[in-house]
């Protein structure tokens, strides 16, 4: 469902992402972890089509992002790390805006939008301007809007930032449910417990390169730390990479 081939991004002399090769199958939740400045957000942005790669390709559901960006984006539900929105629209209007962009028909829109807004606890504020929303409410609105068109791929950058524990649990359940129904989820996170709990496979990126890839068990084996949790595995692997 998601194919990254030799994906590379350079900012001037800085190599942010270095020949990244990855694939995520339908129904899989893939966790992308790494230290600050490792290249996670750059990778996510290239996958979402908001940043063009220096080299390599992003293929979503068989569609090359560079060749047919609109087609590819239509299949993605993109959730950025910071929920910047149109502050002068109401929550419901933003949902309508997203529906129009992603081709959700008028017939199904209202029911779907209300259902999502209720799920995310925003229905009572759906006719208030977004400028009055808290950070967490904006984040929940972005997630609601991203799910409106039943995307085949979810690309999400730090989904839990700014959410309260109840919302975190809800988002986790929703992502699991989506994966069960065949949606591929690509998620970057710093919250390693979330990654451990949620992800089928995890990739560790460090200084732009993928240094480890596998299930939690495989990563523990790789780090020769069978009894450790993901945090220790992560620290061990990135430390080794820094020293080498």
């Amino acid at each position: 469902m998601i194919e990254l081939t030799d994906l590379t991004k350079r900012y001037g002399k800085t190599l942010a992402v270095d020949r990244l090769n990855l694939s995520v199958a339908p129904g899989e939740i893939f966790g992308f972890i790494g230290p600050n400045g490792a290249g996670k957000t750059t990778t996510i942005r290239m996958m979402g089509g908001t940043l063009s790669p220096t080299a390599g390709a992003v293929v979503i559901d068989g569609i090359d992002m560079a060749a047919r960006p609109e087609e590819a984006k239509r299949r993605i539900g993109f959730i950025p790390d910071r929920p910047f929105l149109y502050e002068k629209l109401t929550g419901m209007e933003f949902m309508r805006f997203s529906a129009d962009l992603y081709g959700v028909g008028d017939g199904t829109f209202l029911q779907k939008a209300e259902e999502l807004l209720r799920t995310f606890g925003l229905f009572d504020w759906s006719h208030d301007l977004i400028e009055a929303y808290s950070h967490g409410m904006k984040q929940r609105l972005v997630i609601s809007a991203a799910l409106l068109h039943n995307p085949r791929v979810i690309v999400v950058d730090e989904p839990m930032v700014g959410l309260d524990p109840a919302a975190i649990k809800m988002v986790k359940d929703i992502l699991k449910d989506l994966a069960r129904r065949g949606t591929a989820v690509f998620m970057s996170t710093h919250t390693l417990s979330v990654a451990e709990d949620l992800c089928d496979r995890i990739g560790i990126i460090h200084r732009g390169a993928l240094i480890a890839l596998g299930t939690t068990r495989e990563l523990k084996r790789l780090a020769q730390a069978q009894q450790a949790d993901l945090e220790e595995v992560f620290l061990k692997l990135t430390e080794e990479q820094t020293l080498s």
Binding site: T50, F78, P80, F84
Partner: peptide
């Protein structure tokens, strides 16, 4: 569009 320009970039619209 300001900082919300990511919405345009991520949307299926050229």
């Amino acid at each position: 569009e300001g900082v919300a320009f990511w919405i345009v970039r991520a949307s299926p619209v050229s």
